[in-house]
């Protein structure tokens, strides 16, 4: 089955595509390998997140270069761009942005479909595994590169029996762009 073009985003550029099953199975074997290497689920969760982070800090440039979007004016905008443009571009899924906290610093990205976790059924001994943690890392890494420090964690996971995938984003700090030079330097 070949993935059709990203349908969610209107002005999405044509990117090279990969067969969805190859992608899913590759990710599956990475997770398996990590489990057999580290033998500790908490450590695997951490490693997945770190891998995602490393991807995110690179991927954000690719995204900004190709997506042709304008600057986001608020965290709310940013969350929308992640959910409606970045996810369709790289994963061919769209997320809904919901559950905003009153001070607009926390929200949830809700996915009902997740190509990373196709075919997967978590065995009982891996109940604590956050299978899609790589995605949390990607979002954190990408947003850090645009001066937003966020905390990402999965609060619901269909693999654990919830009815959707919910990624909670929490804005910890929004750093302004700092220039290394002062005017009089």
């Amino acid at each position: 089955m070949l993935r059709s073009g990203p349908t969610g985003a209107r002005n999405a550029p044509a990117l090279e595509q990969i067969n969805a099953e190859v992608f899913t199975l590759t990710y599956g074997s990475i997770v398996r390998q990590l489990i057999s290497d580290y033998e500790d689920i908490e450590e695997v969760n951490k490693q997945l997140e770190q891998m995602g982070y490393n991807m995110g800090i690179r991927l954000v440039d690719e995204f900004l270069a190709k997506a042709k979007i304008s600057r986001c004016s608020s965290f709310r905008d940013t969350a929308d761009v992640v959910a409606k443009q970045a996810l369709p571009m790289f994963l061919n899924v769209t997320a809904n942005v919901t559950n905003w906290s009153p001070d607009q610093t926390e929200c949830s990205l809700v996915l009902t479909d997740n190509p990373l976790a196709d075919f997967v059924e978590l065995p009982d001994e891996y109940r604590e595994l956050r299978y899609c943690n790589v995605l949390a890392g990607v979002v954190r890494g990408a947003l850090e590169m645009v001066n937003m420090e966020v905390e990402c964690r999965w609060v619901s996971d269909m693999l654990r029996g919830d009815d959707c995938y919910e990624l909670r984003l929490k804005l910890k700090e929004h750093r302004d762009e700092k220039f290394p030079y002062k005017d009089d330097d």
Binding site: G28, R32, F119, V120
Partner: peptide, 17 residues
């Protein structure tokens, strides 16, 4: 086939799903 594609299943293990 779907069971076999599960990364946590190996071809020789019992199907417990």
């Amino acid at each position: 086939i779907r069971i076999m594609l599960n990364p946590f299943h190996s071809p020789t293990s019992r199907i417990t799903s």
